[in-house]
Structures are given as C-alpha cells and as structure tokens.
C-alpha cells in the first residue's frame, strides 16, 4: 500500500548537510494501523510528512498503491493529497470557521461536490465522530478531544484511503486519548482505512497498532507486529519505550531478580492461552513451586497477553519448561 524504497532526507544548515532520515525501507499494508514510534528528533514527523510530500525527500521512492508519489507534478500531488487525510497534534483547525465549515473545507477546496451534497456529507461525518450538535460552534468553544474529533471528521471528508496521524493524542489528557484512539480504531475497522500514526508513547502503539516501526536517530531500528516488538523488544530504544509504557523500573526488577531463589524465567502468553490456568496446572503436574516476581495481563489491540517473570524452585525444572512450551507459552530462561 505504502512502500518506502531507500527514502532518505537531509537538511542543509548553512553549508553543511544534516541527515534527518537514513535510507529507509518500509511497507505499510492496506487496511492496517501502522505505528511509528521514536523520541522527538528521531525523524518520525519527517517520515510521516514524506508520504503526502509536505516534506520533500532528498532521495529514494515512495510508492502508494502503485503510484510513485515522489514523481507527481503539482496538480497530481494535489489530487493525491485528497486521498490522504491528515490529523495533527495541535488539531490545526481554522479558528475563523465553524465546525461544519472546517469539516466542509476539503470538499469545498476540491470543488467537485454540489453544495447540498457537501452539507449532507458534513452532517454524516459529524454524526460519525459524535459532534452532530456542535456544527455551528467555533473551534475555540470546544475541548481538546472535541477539536481532534473535528480534525478527524475533516480528514475523512474526501473519503481518503489513508489517514496520517501526527501525534494526534499527544496534546490530550489520558482519558480523551483513549476515546480518540478508540475512534481511530473504529474508523480503521469500519472504513477499511489504512492508518499511519506517529507517537512517542508505546501505550498508543499497544492500543491501536497492528505493526510498528521504531525510529532512532533517523533509522528504523526495529519493526514488526506489535505483539512481537512489544513483548520481545530487542533494541535498547524499544526496550526503553516498553518499560516506560509498562511503568517498569528496570533497577527494581534487577534487584527482585537477584534476590529470587531458584531459577528465573520470563513467560509470555498470547491470545486465549492468557486466561488458561497455566501456573496452577504446572505446579500440580511437575511439583514445581513458583513465585511471581513481576508481570501483567493486558491487551495489545484486540489480543490479550500475559507476561510474567517467575522464580521456579524444586521439582523438575526441565519438565516444567517443556510443559509451559507445550501450552503455547514463550519461555525465556533468565537465570
């Protein structure tokens, strides 16, 4: 759907060129929610803006649905941009226009629909984002979450195939963030829209994304399904993001681990297995004693998962490992 082939970007600062993005190869699949995570300055915002060419790449090709976006002329680019909706951290609504006029704007600029049809479409869109009663208000009269809903309705106006989200929830409080993310997931599901979002919060990735790429200093250091990257982070940057999202204090974990008796393993289960009575069965069948050092049961998008660090004592350790693996758990022996 969206393919990056060796795309790179550098800026000229005086007579030096500063690389912002190293050559990047990425593929976003049709209909998925793809997350880009990175610290500020990692280049994620630039990468996102390359897709609709709000930023021009220094080299490489970006192909969307078989069309080389990097080769489009001005008119072609404008047509292409109508197929790509975008929402922003600071909403970027026009303060001088009402909610309805903001949402109608992309349609009026395109100039393809008659007035009546635009009005109907705006009504539909506002109903979808739950703002039907606010059509005549001005953005300044809305809360942050409502403003972002207007942003989403506006981005959907031209029935785009792709929705780009630029830190769409970073300016919102946690509760509103969850609501906006739920709306995005709903839109992705119901409209089959491909969503690319950037964020610096792993929690956002965990809640809505199917796949994720981790950007660090202009490079993709890790990518894959969120279940994989989130539960088995390999790169230090990714590990940092996951620990932050899980509120894990690495030092406290190390200490707990050092004090624990016997062997220490990390157990990861995904899907229905998460709710199976795994540990009780294990203790009964292999005579092993376990204590939970640290862990959590949660969801990654729609997939339940459990990840616990266990200290195992007594009984047959090898048999216990085999039993866990047979039950579909991923086991890492830490000590």
């Amino acid at each position: 759907m969206i393919e990056f082939h060796g795309v790179h970007k550098s800026y000229r600062v005086g007579d030096r060129t500063v690389p912002a993005l190293r050559p990047i190869d990425l593929t976003v699949r049709a209909g998925e929610v793809f997350g880009l995570i990175g610290h500020s300055g990692a280049g994620k915002s630039t990468l996102l803006r390359l897709i609709n060419r709000l930023e021009e790449p220094s080299g490489g090709r970006i192909v969307v649905d078989g069309v080389d976006v990097t080769a489009l002329d001005a008119a072609g680019l404008r047509r292409f941009r109508r197929q790509v909706g975008m929402i922003f951290q600071h909403f970027n609504l026009l303060a001088s226009k009402t909610v309805a006029d903001n949402v109608a704007m992309p349609l009026r600029l395109a100039g393809e629909l008659p007035r009546r049809a635009i009005e109907r479409r705006v009504e539909e869109l506002l109903a979808r984002v739950g703002l039907a009663d606010h059509a005549g208000k001005y953005p300044a009269q809305l809360s942050g979450g409502q403003k972002q809903r207007v942003g989403i309705a506006r981005a959907l106006a031209t029935e785009p195939k792709i929705l780009l989200c630029d830190e769409a929830t970073s300016a919102l409080d946690p509760q509103t963030t969850v609501q906006v993310l739920r709306l995005l997931a709903e839109i992705n599901r119901e409209l089959g829209l491909t969503v690319v979002l950037i964020t610096h919060e792993m929690d956002v990735i965990r809640r809505v994304c199917d796949r994720v790429a981790v950007l660090d200093k202009g490079e993709v250091v890790e990518q894959g399904p969120v279940t994989e990257v989130f539960l088995h982070p390999r790169h230090p940057t990714t590990q940092g993001f996951v620990q932050e999202a899980e509120h894990v204090d690495p030092q406290a974990c190390q200490e707990a681990l050092a004090r624990a008796p016997g062997r220490v393993v990390r157990l990861t289960v995904l899907g229905a297995a998460t709710y199976a009575p795994l540990l009780g069965t294990l203790a009964r069948e292999t005579g092993i004693d376990y204590s939970i050092l640290e862990g959590r049961i949660d969801r990654i998008k729609d997939t339940p998962y459990g990840q616990v660090t266990l200290a195992l004592e007594g009984g047959d350790f090898e048999a216990a490992l085999a039993r866990l693996r047979a039950a579909g758990a991923h086991v890492e022996v830490l000590r």
Binding site: N52, L54, L77, R78, R79, F80, R81, R82, V84, M86, F88, H90, N92, L93, L94, A95, S96, K97, M105, P106, R108, L109, A110, T158, L164
Partner: peptide
C-alpha cells in the same frame, strides 16, 4: 497565522491561491 493551519490546508490538496484566499486571509 499558525503554520500548522497552512500545513493542514496544504495536506487537503489546496492550491497556493486557495491557501491565501480561503485560509490565510480569513484567519
């Protein structure tokens, strides 16, 4: 006028003329 607004209108596929007349001047 916030640059973000210009960016948002650009992302809608507006021409420069539209950016000036429909976004910049009203804002």
């Amino acid at each position: 006028v916030d640059r973000g607004i210009i960016e948002a209108v650009q992302a809608m596929g507006a021409t420069t003329r539209q950016i000036v007349l429909r976004a910049l001047l009203p804002e």
